[in-house]
């Protein structure tokens, strides 16, 4: 299952490039909101990175179900039979990898545009991995739901954005600490919160996914 997902994503790698360009462009645009104030840009760099990633993620997520819905391939998989959990986790892991890759690819853009060289690269990578895991779990569920609708572009963010407030908050805080330095080691508690969020959502959404795609 996972192999199929990765293969699918590999085949649509042009899509990934497009999403990356979108993310990078949004990072560029955010800097206009602040103006040429290098201190402010550096301070807000983490927030902008995650906003860019979040906006790009809606594209990635809805695209990931496009292939499933085109010929009702998802239904074909269910009838083999494949458990909905297997489908869900394969897809979530694939989306996670893609988002994490996207996040990592956006870091150099952030460093160049906002002059925000990270103090601790290991910590930054960990936060990006965890944060994109937090985005991908509910995101995949909601994408699976909204992919079956006509108004998918509107509804996915509408449902998805309020939910991931905690994940986004924790990721931004932890990233910001990794970029600006963390003398009091507050980053650890944010990473704990993020991990808890990821654990809850990976299990809860996996349980509920079957109800969403089965008729």
């Amino acid at each position: 299952m996972l192999r199929k997902e990765l293969l699918l994503q590999w085949r649509t790698r042009a899509q990934f490039m497009a999403v990356f360009v979108f993310g990078a462009a949004s990072l560029l645009l955010f800097s206009f909101a602040i103006g040429p104030n290098s201190v402010a840009l550096r301070t807000f760099s983490a927030g902008f990175l995650w906003l860019g990633l979040l906006l790009s993620s809606t594209l990635t997520l809805s695209e990931s179900f496009h292939a499933e819905m085109e010929n009702r391939a998802l239904e074909g998989l269910l009838l083999i039979p494949t458990s909905p959990q297997a489908i869900y986790y394969a897809k979530t892991i694939a989306n996670w990898l893609q988002l994490a890759l996207l996040g990592i690819a956006l870091v150099p853009v952030m460093v160049v545009l906002y002059d925000a060289g990270p103090q601790s690269i290991g910590r930054l990578l960990l936060v990006i991995l965890l944060g994109s895991a937090g985005l991908s779990a509910p995101g995949t569920l909601y994408a699976g739901m909204t992919a079956q609708l006509r108004a998918k572009q509107t509804l996915l963010p509408l449902l998805f954005f309020p939910l991931i407030v905690p994940a986004l908050l924790a990721s931004v805080k932890a990233t910001s600490l990794a970029v600006l330095g963390d003398p009091m080691d507050q980053g650890r508690s944010w990473i704990t919160l993020l991990s808890a969020f990821v654990a809850i959502y990976w299990s809860l959404c996996g349980l509920l996914f079957g109800r969403v795609i089965e008729e």
């Binding site: 699918l8 010929n71 009702r72 391939a73 998989l77 083999i80 039979p81």
Partner: peptide, 30 residues
């Protein structure tokens, strides 16, 4: 439903195929 699915195969008017994959890759799921 699980047991029924194990026994049956449906040729539907949906092709259940992934457009981006080739024939071999599509079938190797099954």
């Amino acid at each position: 439903r699980e047991d029924v699915r194990r026994l049956t195969a449906l040729l539907s008017h949906y092709s259940y195929l992934y457009e981006a994959l080739n024939a071999r890759e599509n079938l190797s799921l099954f």
